[in-house]
């Protein structure tokens, strides 16, 4: 998994990584130079010390050098920033809305909605449009791009692309409330064909299962009122205040990067989400669903993949 500025997965991230290395190495070189001069000033002979203390040396090293270095860095950095703003035409558009404490992901041209996981085909130009449904969040996938603020009432845009398959981790980078630290997500970079298959699965309506145990889960999901907040494509449940659950079983994590995704963590999450991620919007269902119902709901949701 990639979660570092120093592990770039696309051309935009590569330019940012280059800039980071320039700053790290340049900063280290200047630090060593200053330490060397300090050593000379402390232990050098009188001639060396006189030259180091001369007005000309102080003006050159203390004024001219920093002004030149900082000016050059400023011009270079602004050049990188300007280059990152350009993109190829007709990109794939992806909209992400930050919410306390999860991410709604939409592909407006494909009419699909998902959550906490963004699939992106390798080599395609992507236009990302981000906003917020409540407070200010920040969308940050270090191996993809810089931070992008998510501001209520404003859409921020970025262009980027990924040049090889892999899984990248992203994280909310602007304090947004008690569970800010547990507001993560994953970017899945995959080949175009695989991406299209994923979209197909996401678009397919979910039918009521034949298998009795799963059908019991479907029933209990409806009776417990889960559909007031959650949507499952093709079912009567179309709530939008919580994450869309279509293909939930196929996701890499639960509760926005909080838990690994398997039957036990899912059942545990439904029973007691406030014990796992206190302050999130989902109430506990351990008093609404009995044991068999809870297991059936979890089994049905895990089967959606």
């Amino acid at each position: 998994m990639h979660h570092s500025v120093l592990s770039p997965m696309g051309p935009e991230a590569a330019r940012i990584a280059e800039l980071s290395w320039l700053l790290f190495l340049g900063g280290a070189a200047i630090f060593l130079l200053v330490m060397l001069l300090l050593a000379l000033a402390l232990g050098g002979g009188p001639g060396v010390r006189r030259r180091l203390g001369a007005r000309r040396a102080i003006l050159a090293g203390g004024v001219a050098f920093p002004v030149l270095v900082l000016s050059a860095l400023l011009v270079h950095t602004l050049g990188v920033a300007a280059a990152l703003g350009l993109g190829e035409p007709a990109p794939l558009r992806i909209e992400v809305t930050g919410r306390q404490y999860w991410w709604e992901v939409r592909y407006p041209d494909r009419e699909v909605v998902t959550a906490n996981e963004i699939h992106i085909p390798v080599g395609r130009a992507v236009e990302l449009l981000v906003d917020s449904g409540d407070v200010i969040h920040s969308f940050w996938v270090p191996s993809l791009h810089g931070k992008i603020d998510m501001i209520p009432g404003r859409v921020n845009r970025r262009r980027f692309s990924l040049d090889r398959p892999g899984v990248l981790r992203g994280q909310c980078a602007e304090f947004c409330g008690t569970q800010h630290a547990l507001m993560a997500f994953f970017v899945v970079a995959e080949e175009e064909a695989e991406f299209e298959r994923w979209l197909e699965r996401l678009r397919a309506p979910v039918a009521k299962p034949e298998e009795p145990f799963l059908a019991q889960g479907w029933q209990a999901f409806g009776q417990a009122g889960c559909g007031a907040c959650h949507a499952v494509r093709g079912t009567p449940w179309a709530g939008r205040s919580g994450p869309d659950l279509t293909l939930l079983g196929g996701r890499l994590s639960l509760a926005a990067g909080t838990l690994d995704n398997h039957l036990a963590t899912l059942a545990g999450w439904i029973a007691g989400p406030q014990d796992i991620k206190p302050g999130n919007r989902m109430p506990a269902f351990n008093t609404v669903l009995d044991g068999p119902e809870l297991r059936a709901v979890a089994a049905w949701l895990e089967s959606l993949r």
Partner: peptide, 8 residues
Amino acid sequence: ALPVLLVP
């Protein structure tokens, strides 16, 4: 003033 010239 420099960013005005270099960044859109």
